[in-house]
């Protein structure tokens, strides 16, 4: 794409700005910020990626992944303030999901072990894992405060914290995974997935693009399952003390 063509894409920013102005939606500022941020962030990433791909140094790949995990953690932890050590729990979850998934992909040599593959796939793994963590934490904390009387009931009958939170944990894990599973059911019928579209526009063979997309779909399913389950089992114990009592301020 030429820079002239790229500048013309700003028309798509002007449309919402004008609509917001005329309809008094009050979204001008946010639209403007979003536009500026996406320009800066994406251009920066583009140059960084070019540098990393050219240098072929492993250390840069690790740095990029660390940066992704760090940013994703800071973003997701806002939803789990009531859980002690949530930052480390999310970071650990993201790291584990990334290592396990990449371990399988690279271990079986499903794709070549080069930065060109590792980094975009890591981005998808970590990004999806972050979204799942947010969905899970949202639902789990809501479930816990809505059903605290049932948690107390099970404790009062001689149940352990694990038994007392089992139901809420399972429904939060399920609820957080449903969007991933549902969106894969209609994939390709309505919207072509972003990565596949990108490849096709860039001139790749559609069949080749589909094969990669399938890999991504399967990766997203496994990261969805792993993220919420890991995070779930790391989170629930912090809501109780060692006398198996509910920490009131956490509910």
């Amino acid at each position: 794409m030429s820079y002239l063509a790229l500048s013309l894409t700003l028309i798509f920013v002007l449309i919402p700005l004008i609509l917001s102005k005329t309809l008094n939606l009050g979204l001008e500022k946010d639209t403007f910020i979003a536009t500026v941020r996406s320009i800066i962030q994406l251009l920066a990433v583009g140059y960084v990626l070019k540098f990393v791909f050219d240098s072929e140094h492993l250390i840069y790949i690790f740095l990029m992944i660390a940066l992704m995990i760090g940013t994703a953690t800071l973003n997701a932890r806002k939803k789990g303030k009531s859980i002690d050590g949530i930052t480390w729990k999310i970071a650990f979850t993201l790291l584990t999901v990334e290592v396990l998934t990449q371990g399988i992909i690279l271990g079986f040599q499903i794709v070549p072990a080069t930065a060109q593959y590792i980094i975009p796939i890591s981005g998808m793994i970590i990004g999806n894992s972050m979204v799942l963590s947010i969905l899970f934490l949202n639902r789990f904390t809501a479930e816990m405060s809505a059903h605290r009387d049932q948690v107390e009931l099970i404790l009062s009958l001689g149940g352990t914290p694990k038994q007392a939170t089992h139901h809420q944990l399972i429904s939060a894990i399920k609820a957080s995974m449903i969007p991933t599973i549902e969106s894969q059911k209609t994939i390709g019928l309505v919207q072509l997935p972003g990565m596949m579209s990108g490849q096709i526009i860039a001139g790749a063979d559609p069949i080749q693009a589909v094969q990669f997309q399938l890999l991504i779909v399967f990766i997203l399913l496994t990261t969805a399952a792993m993220s919420s389950i890991f995070l779930g089992f790391l989170s629930y114990p912090t809501l109780f003390n060692d006398r198996m009592q509910m920490l009131k301020e956490k509910f």
Binding site: D149, S156, H167
Partner: peptide, 24 residues
């Protein structure tokens, strides 16, 4: 009371809660 394991304690000292909560 702190010498009891909480699970054993709560089985031995049963409680019917004021709100009579039910599980699903």
């Amino acid at each position: 009371i702190s010498t009891y394991n909480p699970v054993d304690l709560r089985r031995n000292v049963g409680m019917a809660l004021q709100s009579a909560p039910m599980i699903k």
